[in-house]
């Protein structure tokens, strides 16, 4: 799943050129968040290809709570067993 497909309307994403992470900007709330992981990693988590650690799950949940990504887009997360 491409990360762009779950971003809420008004949310901009920038992957840094040095591959150090991505930055999301929510123009609705003017909040900005920097993630120290690459977009492909987030996409693997969302697509269920990678298991999700507790911290990663918390990070994604807070993106949802703060209106960066659509509700219910975390349904396919695979828990770290």
């Amino acid at each position: 799943m491409l990360i762009q497909s779950i971003l809420k309307q008004g949310v901009h994403m920038h992957p840094f050129h040095d591959l150090s992470g991505i930055c999301l900007y929510n123009d609705n709330t003017t909040e900005m968040v920097t993630l120290f992981v690459q977009a492909t990693h987030v996409e693997r988590l969302l697509g269920g290809q990678s298991p999700c650690s507790r911290d990663e799950r918390r990070m994604l949940q807070s993106l949802e709570d703060k209106g960066f990504i659509n509700e219910h887009s975390l349904s396919c997360l695979k828990h770290l067993s």
Partner: peptide, 11 residues
């Protein structure tokens, strides 16, 4: 700093 870290601090 990498770019993500620098952005985080600059913002």
């Amino acid at each position: 700093l990498n770019q993500a870290q620098a952005m985080h601090q600059l913002a």
